[in-house]
C-alpha cells in the first residue's frame, strides 16, 4: 500500500512538473528575473499546488494516515542559521541553472548531458551536506 501510494504521488508530481512547464529552466529563470523580462508562471504553479495541499492539511485534523502511524508534527517556528544559510545556498544554485530537485528528477531522461551533470553534482552536494555540518559542529562539541 505504501509503495502504491508513493508511486501515485511520484507520478502525479512528475506529471504536474512536466505539464506546468517547470522542467523548462527558461521559465524558472524568467520567474527569478524580477528586474528583467519577468515570467510569473511559477507563481501560478505554486498557487495551484498550495490549494489542494492546504485542504490536505485541514483533513489531517483528528485523523491518521491511511497506512497508519501519525502525521508529521508542525515544527517549531524557530529560525536557525542552518535553515537560513541552507536556503541562501539553494537559492543561489537555483538561480545559476534554473533547476531545483523536483524538476531535475522529472526531466532526468530528457534533459540531456546538462541535466545529468546538474543531477550528479546535486547528489554529491546532498552527500556532502551532513559531512559539512559535522565539520562545522566539531569545534562547538569540543568545548
Amino acid at each position: 500500500m505504501r509503495l502504491i501510494l508513493a508511486l501515485l504521488a511520484g507520478g502525479l508530481f512528475g506529471t504536474g512538473l512536466h505539464l506546468s512547464g517547470m522542467t523548462d529552466t527558461q521559465k524558472v529563470l524568467g520567474f527569478l528575473d524580477l528586474f528583467g523580462a519577468w515570467d510569473p508562471t511559477l507563481m501560478f504553479v505554486m498557487g495551484g499546488a498550495i490549494v489542494p495541499m492546504a485542504i490536505a492539511w485541514a483533513l489531517t485534523r483528528g485523523r491518521s494516515p491511511l497506512v497508519g502511524g501519525t502525521f508529521p508534527a508542525k515544527p517549531d517556528a524557530k529560525l536557525d542559521p542552518r535553515l537560513i544559510s541552507g536556503a541562501v545556498m539553494f537559492g543561489i544554485g537555483w538561480g545559476l541553472v534554473g533547476l531545483c530537485p523536483g524538476p531535475a528528477l522529472a526531466s532526468l531522461t530528457y534533459g540531456g548531458p546538462s541535466g545529468l551533470i546538474f543531477f550528479s553534482a546535486m547528489v554529491i552536494g546532498m552527500w556532502l551536506a551532513p559531512r559539512a555540518l559535522r565539520l562545522l559542529d566539531r569545534p562547538a562539541t569540543a568545548e
Binding site: A9, S20, G48, V51, P52, T60, L66, G69
Partner: peptide
C-alpha cells in the same frame, strides 16, 4: 493545472503515507 496536480501529489503522500 500542473500546480494542482503537484498539490494533489503532496496530498496523497501526506494523507496516505503520512
Amino acid at each position: 493545472v500542473g500546480g494542482a496536480l503537484i498539490g494533489c501529489a503532496g496530498a496523497v503522500y501526506l494523507l496516505g503515507n503520512g
